[in-house]
Every structure is written in C-alpha cells, then in structure tokens.
C-alpha cells in the first residue's frame, strides 16, 4: 500500500478532539486558581498584615504547597488529566513538575536521582525565564541611555 492511501486512512480514523470541552475546563479551573490566589493575597494583606508584594509571595507559596501535597498523595495527575492547562499554567504546574520528578528520582539516589531529575521538566521554565529576563533588562538598560527611564 502506498504512503498516501495509508495516511488518508490514518487521518480518517484519528479520534475526535474535544477542544471545546478541554478549553472550557481549562478556563474554569484556571479561573478558580486565580480566585484562590487572590483570596490568599487578601488573607496575607488583611490577616497577616503583609505588604502586597509579600502577600503575593505568600499566595504563591501556599499554591506550591497545595500542588506538592496533591502530587504526594497521587491525586494531582488525575485532576490534571481533567483540566489540562487549568493546572499546568498556574504555579501548580511548576510545583507538580518538580515534585513528581523529585519523588520518582529517589530511586537513583539523592544526587543524580532527586537533585538532578527534579529540574528535568521545570528546568526549561527557569532557563528561558532567566535568559529572556536578562535580555529584556539589558535592552531596558540600553534604552535608559536613550531617555527611556528605568
């Protein structure tokens, strides 16, 4: 059988994508994470008397904690299967990628198992975050000599 006929058959039998359902679930889940994060910020400013930047850090830490605990109990990935980007875009995704990799890395020991594998999935976020941040800051630095205030 030639390749063209085969690939037509494959295309025809590809399962239907549930893009609307997935988009809806991601939107709702992401939105709820936003609300939870804001509630935590308000908790920080009103109850713990933190300044807004510190309250935001507090909010992030609690979100990380929540994601790590769910990962440790084995519940996170079932939830993530349902909501997709609704969990991998918030900080929960970052925390889960590090926690799940670290937990599984334990079999290869603390150095090459846990220590190295922890960053296997989250590493690129840190890498490109820092790399692009440096470039952005340097561009701003150069612009500051042309009158654009820092």
């Amino acid at each position: 059988m030639d390749y063209t006929t085969y690939s037509e058959i494959v295309k025809k039998n590809a399962p239907k994508k549930h893009m609307v359902r997935n988009g809806f679930l991601a939107f709702i889940s992401g939105g709820l994470m936003g609300i939870a994060a804001q509630a935590l910020i308000d908790l920080g400013t009103n109850v713990l008397n933190l300044e807004t930047p510190e309250a935001m850090s507090f909010s992030a830490i609690v979100v990380v904690f929540f994601a790590a605990v769910l990962t440790m109990f084995g519940w996170y990935n079932n939830l993530a299967q349902l909501v997709g980007a609704g969990l991998f875009i918030p900080t929960t995704g970052f925390a889960n990628s590090m926690t799940s990799a670290a937990i599984e890395g334990k079999f290869e020991g603390p150095i090459y198992g846990v220590g190295t594998r922890m960053f296997a999935l989250a590493g690129s976020v840190i890498t490109y975050g820092v790399f692009s941040a440096v470039i952005c800051c340097v561009i701003r630095y150069i612009l500051s000599f042309m009158g654009v205030a820092l």
Binding site: L32, M33, A37, Q38, L121
Partner: peptide, 29 residues
C-alpha cells in the same frame, strides 16, 4: 477579574496544547 484573566491565560494555553504538538514544557516556557 482574577477569574477571567487567569482563566484566559489557561484557555489560550489549552488551545495551543490541543491544536499543536507543543507540550506543557514548551507552552510554560
């Protein structure tokens, strides 16, 4: 607004995930 903005980011990411071959690692980066 928190609901809408966070939801919007996630929705865009989900569309990219479903329509392309990009993985969550690519999209978060």
């Amino acid at each position: 607004y928190a609901f809408l903005v966070a939801g919007a980011f996630c929705l865009v990411a989900q569309i990219i995930y479903d329509k392309t071959k990009l993985t969550p690692g690519h999209i978060t980066s």
